[in-house]
Design a protein around this nucleic acid. Structure first.
Lengths: 330, 330
DNA sequence: TTGTACGCGTTATCAC
DNA sequence: GTGATAACGCGTACAA
């Protein structure tokens, strides 16, 4: 049960391999009769062109390498979904490797991708320094999503501005003691968001109270723990700006456990607007990150780069989605 | 800036390509000196073997085709994550295409994968009939996840039994009017779960009330709509068995909107145990589907099949995770 | 328009 | 142990 090849088609159709190749790829005009003969043979024998051989011959693998971070947060997962969806009706197929958010793993993963001669690279998050990426991927069309690295093509969100807006909104509602739960220590998104929080406070002439800034890790558990702890220590606050929706859910649960009504006593704002946010009780006010769309954008950019077009980095705007987890106080 | 090849290494190391290939793959004994020379040259020139060429020569692409269903439910996404993770430290890389849960798309996607000469196939969910899969994938190691198709190697959950247990549990808590929100009409999981629900009712001598069986689509919105509607029509029920966690969230929100306390007045049970379930208010009692693990299992099975070992289908057990969304009544 | 012949980078089969 | 050399299946100058 040998795999049938272009030669078989050629023989059956009574033409040369070149001609078969031509009708298959539409690379040149061929006589209608021969074209038809080839198509019939292709159909009849159920011929599937060998992409591997084609890749080798053309020097293009029609494959896109995607570096993911399986850290279990919906944000990165959604980006991956966007990437898959976007390549679905192109001749390219994405191939996935996981960097586990660890520099060493990431570098190995990228190397493996390059070994597979991918035609482009989508780097989702990650912690490889800019210079190393430049080094590793030189000459290879590369787009980075969820991270803004000057000198590279990136699709990222304006985290600082979003956190600023969110905090400002809370302040406008009369909140003065706004707890903030930061994400992972060196995660750039976390750093940027905290900066936005600070800026809003500063602008409003509010003091930055150290007991209100807590560091988490983007998990629901961190929200649960931290707020539980704050409550136990009787730290007073009327609102919390969570690292992301997951953390916000943890926060909400901690409040539920302590019979503190949301938003009457404490308001919550999350980050992401993942699917579940709109269905929390109460529905969560959050900063929407168009994560899936970011994956699509990145893929589109990459396709353009591969086509030789020049593109710019894209900064997508987050958007404060006002639902019901924030109340105004006096 | 030509790509360097095995020939370059051979030249630099002063040996033949064959020898280079041998040390690279460890296919045969090579004199230590030459071996070292090759390794040094490889290192110095930063040589990355061309996997495409290797694939063509060996007839094995070291690539696994994965058919996904981007329907936006966490269950399928989690399976994908499991697959990616599992292949991460194998020489294989998964390549993804989306079937969009539509027969035509799925068939095309599988064809594309075969064209890429994948060494194996992981089919996540999907709606292609069994016979067609057999036809399409004959001779190609294939594992199906999230669906039980007799005659194929599958990794699936015992949905009927789980729904039965969940319903039985509700009945044991004194519930008599248990609303059920089914998933998509022809979705096998939905069908099986409903069967389990029916069996439990039957066994307890409870009548199947038509106004309590509703069909949804696995979305949160369907839960919201349906329960809202039930309430409006004054249908009485004390518990609802939701199609999945997402639907359960919608249910919970509908109840929240109508000031009906959970679980005091109405109990809820979901399906999946996705990340967010444990952080709902109250934490959701649900049937845990080890989705990510299912992705891992499927990948492991596939690897074994590729190695020529024979394997059996795996039926993983769901598990009722009792949290706080169910109360007993009298 | 069509066919011939060679190249793509490796692996595998031989002899040596 | 080692090195030529022929596959692997397809694209593509080049010539016809």
């Amino acid at each position: 049960m040998k795999n049938i090849t272009i030669d078989d088609i050629a023989r059956v159709a009574g033409v040369s391999k070149s001609t078969v190749s031509r009708v298959l790829n539409g690379t040149a005009k061929v006589h209608p009769d021969k074209k038809k003969a080839v198509e019939e043979a292709t159909e009849r024998l159920g011929f599937q062109p060998n992409v591997v051989a084609s890749s080798l011959a053309r020097g293009r693998s029609m494959t896109i390498g995607v570096l993911t971070q399986l850290m279990g947060t919906p944000f990165y997962d959604a980006i991956s979904q966007g990437v898959i969806a976007e390549f679905n009706d192109t001749p390219y197929s994405p191939i996935f490797v996981d960097g586990q958010w660890q520099k060493g793993e990431e570098v190995d993963a990228i190397r493996a991708l390059i070994g597979r001669r991918v035609d482009g690279l989508v780097l989702i998050g990650g912690s490889v320094p800019s210079s190393e990426i430049a080094n590793l991927c030189s000459g290879l069309p590369t787009v980075i999503v969820g991270r803004n690295l000057p000198g590279h093509k990136c699709v990222y969100m304006n985290n600082e501005a979003c956190a600023y807006e969110a905090t400002k909104y809370l302040i406008a509602q009369g909140h003065r003691d706004i707890a903030v739960i930061r994400g992972l220590e060196h995660h750039q998104d976390a750093v940027d968001r905290f900066a936005g929080y600070q800026r809003a406070l500063l602008e409003a002439g509010l003091p930055l109270k150290q007991e209100l800034v807590q560091s988490g890790d983007f998990s629901a558990d961190s929200g649960l723990e931290i707020v539980g702890d704050l409550l136990r220590r009787n730290v007073s606050f009327t609102a919390v700006l969570a690292a992301n929706d997951l953390t916000a859910m943890g926060v909400r649960l901690a409040l539920y456990r302590n019979d503190i009504p949301v938003p009457e006593k404490v308001s919550i704002i999350g980050f992401d607007d993942q699917l579940e946010a709109a269905y929390m009780s109460p529905p969560l006010t959050t900063v929407k990150q168009p994560s899936r769309k970011m994956g699509s954008y990145a893929s589109q950019c990459l396709l353009k780069m591969i086509d030789g077009k020049s593109i710019d980095s894209i900064c997508v705007d987050g958007e404060l989605v006002q639902r019901e987890s924030v109340a105004s106080i006096q």
